[in-house]
């Protein structure tokens, strides 16, 4: 089903039949009911679905923030399904760049210090850290905002800092959770243009969103419903997606 105009890169994410149960009081809620997904290098994929579809749970799995109840999950050939907290932290640090809806920047630190944070956890020395952070800030067009704190930046600039932070460790995937949710549509488009640019430069991007306007930027769309993948197709086919979203 996956087709792309580009040559298919090596497999980055390989998920097979994963489930996730949450125990809520007496009840066990099954948020994912057997999801299989393969993501290759330099794909640009949107994960869509209404709330309660298991979209967030899948994102947590993909981001190695959580482990599945059952099923197989290999990240770059490494089995992450059975990793402990610290091993997962190392994977998140090196392989995944997070971009959050609410930016999640440290309020009292400058752009540069915010972007340096993943490098501290990677054990990189201060001089190299600063050099690398400055470099990615330049890439996202914030060379002149390096020593500004988040409250001195616009929403779009803040999200650019967050994108720079996601990029700084050269991760295998960039995982963006509703990256434009807190931005006006014009700024949102700017951020999406930045993602397009990153994609063109060879990055792998996973976009989790419920907004069709945002999802259209991706080259592949996965729809979730009731903890299962409903559709997984190349490009964004408005009619198909409309049907997928609105079918009761």
């Amino acid at each position: 089903m996956v087709t792309s105009t580009r040559p298919v890169g090596p497999l980055v994410i390989d998920i097979e039949n994963i489930t996730k149960d949450y125990v809520m009081g007496e009840e066990t809620v099954r948020a994912l009911r057997g999801v299989s997904l393969q993501i290759h290098k330099n794909e640009y994929i949107a994960v869509m679905g209404p709330s309660g579809s298991g979209k967030s749970t899948l994102m947590n799995m993909l981001g190695c923030l959580d482990t599945p109840t059952s099923g197989r999950y290999e990240f770059n050939g490494k089995n992450v399904a059975e990793m402990n907290d610290d091993e997962l932290a190392a994977i998140r640090n090196r392989e995944i760049g997070f971009v959050f809806q609410t930016f999640n920047l440290l309020p009292r630190s400058t752009s540069l210090r915010n972007v340096e944070l993943p490098l501290i956890y990677a054990g990189i020395d201060p001089d190299t850290r600063e050099e690398m952070a400055a470099h990615v800030l330049h890439e996202v067009g914030l060379s002149d905002r390096m020593n500004h704190k988040p409250n001195e930046l616009s929403g779009g600039q803040r999200q650019r800092v967050a994108v720079a932070r996601a990029l700084v460790n050269r991760p295998s995937i960039i995982l963006a959770d509703e990256p434009t949710g807190n931005l006006d549509s014009k700024t949102g488009e700017e951020i999406m243009a930045l993602f397009e640019d990153l994609y063109q430069r060879g990055n792998t991007i996973i976009l989790v969103t419920h907004e069709r306007d945002i999802a259209v930027h991706a080259r592949r769309t996965v729809h979730l419903r009731d903890g299962l993948i409903e559709t997984d197709h190349a490009g964004f086919i408005p009619e198909l997606d409309l049907v997928a979203l609105e079918r009761p």
Binding site: D85, R94, P118, Y121
Partner: peptide, 15 residues
């Protein structure tokens, strides 16, 4: 939330 962010960025329990 800051702790969550730090963990997402690779902070271990020890950190």
């Amino acid at each position: 939330r800051e702790i969550g962010t730090r963990k997402a960025l690779g902070a271990r329990r020890r950190t």
